[in-house]
């Protein structure tokens, strides 16, 4: 089987993308709301990813 070597960033983005898709599908009632919520979740994931990355970088000293 193929073996993948992803960076932290790539793995976290893939996780965010797939999780946002599922959260969008199972949460809202119309397709428009689902798409909007999925994109919103993805945006929050990415914002948290960058925020925590900077926090760890700055906290490391």
């Amino acid at each position: 089987m193929l073996k993948m070597n992803l960076s932290h960033f790539e793995a976290a983005i893939l996780f965010a993308l797939l999780t946002s898709a599922v959260l969008g599908v199972v949460t809202k009632r119309t397709d428009r709301e689902r798409m909007r919520y999925g994109l919103q979740c993805f945006g929050y994931f990415v914002a948290a990813l960058f925020g925590l990355s900077w926090l760890m970088y700055l906290g490391h000293g």
């Binding site: 089987m1 193929l2 793995a11 797939l18 999780t19």
Partner: peptide, 14 residues
């Protein structure tokens, strides 16, 4: 698609 891809990526990352 989402569950399958996440599981497959997990396997490929061993």
């Amino acid at each position: 698609g989402s569950v399958a891809l996440m599981f497959l990526l997990g396997l490929m990352m061993r």
